[in-house]
Amino acid sequence: MSERTAPVVDPSNAEQLRAWDGDQGAYWATRAERFDEGVARYQDRFLAAAAIEPGSAVLDIGCGAGRTTRDAARLAGPGTALGVDLSSRMVDLARELAAREGLGNARFLQADAQVHPFPDGAFDVAVSRHGAMFFGDPPAAFANVARAVRAGGRLALLSWQPWQRNEWVSTFRAILSAGRELPAPPPSPGSLRDPDQVRELLTAAGFADVRLHGLTEPMCFGRDVDDAFRFVVGQFGWLMDGLDDDGRARAADDLRASMAEHLTDGGVRYGSAAWLIEARRR
C-alpha cells in the first residue's frame, strides 16, 4: 500500500524538491547500488556512531534508496526505522528493496524533514548519510529534527568536508571545467562542512556534546575506466556546458586519462574526506 501524498515542503527546499523529485532523483534511483558502493567504506563507522539498539525507533533523513534505513531496521529490531526523502522515485525503490529483504519494520515516506510534523520525542536516534547537508534553512530543519528526538537521544550525520579536500570533486571539477573559473560551492552552514558552524548550529537546535571526526576513504566510481566514465559524466557532465565540441572532447579524454591513473584492482578509486558528526539531544 502506498503512503505517498503530496509532500509539504518549506519554500527554501523548493529547488531541492524539483531536483530530487525530478531528473536528479531518477538518475540516483536507477543507480542506487552504485551510489551505495561509492560510500560503502564509511557505512560501518557511521552505524557504529549511531549506536542503534534493539527496540530503538530510528529516523533516517534523506534516506535515498534506503540502504541506511534498512541497516538501521536490522539493528533496531524489534524497533522501527523510518526513512524520509524528497524523491518519490527513491522512496518507491526503498520500499521495494525493504520488502524484498523482508524488513517489515522499515517504513518510508516522501517528506521534507525540515517541516514534517514528526511526533514529539518519537525517535531514539536520528541519522543522515549525506542528506541533512541539503537543508535550505538549517536552523529550522535541525530544530524540527531535535523536536522529534527524545531527550538523551542520539544524532549521527555524515557530510562531506570542503570540496578541496575531496580528490574526486576537485579532480572532476578541474577536468570538466577545462580551466574555466566556475563558482565554488559555498561552505554554508547547511553544507555541514565547517566544524565551528556545525557545533553552533546543532547546539542552538537543542543538541549537546557535538563531536566531529574527520574520516578519509577511497571512493569507487566504476569497475573500469569506461564504466566510471559513464557514471561520472552522468553526474557531472553539466560542468562541460558552454564548451565547444573540441573542448568537450579534450575534457573527456583528460577525464579518461585521470581514471586510468586511478584504476586499481578494486575499480576506479579517488580519495574522499567526510565529517562524522555525533551529538546528543538535551
Rank of each mutant, 00 (worst) to 15 (best):
V210Y: 05
Y27K: 09
P54Q: 15
R41W: 09
G206M: 02
Q24D: 07
D224P: 03
S191M: 14
R282L: 10
R70F: 03
S56N: 14
V58F: 04
R173T: 11
R280H: 07
R70Q: 13
V145G: 00
L47N: 08
L157I: 15
A148S: 15
G83F: 00
V58E: 00
L103I: 13
H116A: 10
P119E: 14
R250N: 06
L201G: 07
A19D: 08
R248W: 04
G83P: 00
R193Q: 12
D120S: 15
N13W: 01
A94D: 00
C63P: 01
A14W: 07
S191E: 02
R193G: 05
R89Y: 12
V169M: 10
F135G: 01
L201V: 10
V84P: 00
G152H: 08
P187N: 13
S170C: 09
I52M: 09
Q16K: 05
A14S: 05
A151W: 09
A29Q: 13
S188I: 12
P78T: 15
T216G: 06
M240A: 14
G267W: 02
R100F: 08
M1R: 07
A106W: 02
T264E: 04
T30F: 03
D23F: 07
M133P: 00
L103Y: 04
S170R: 14
E96P: 02
F207Y: 08
P183K: 15
Q161N: 02
D10E: 11
S12H: 09
P185Y: 08
V169F: 15
T203H: 11
P187Y: 01
L263A: 15
L182C: 08
A122K: 08
E167Q: 13
L239D: 11
A51S: 08
G214R: 08
F236S: 11
G242Y: 13
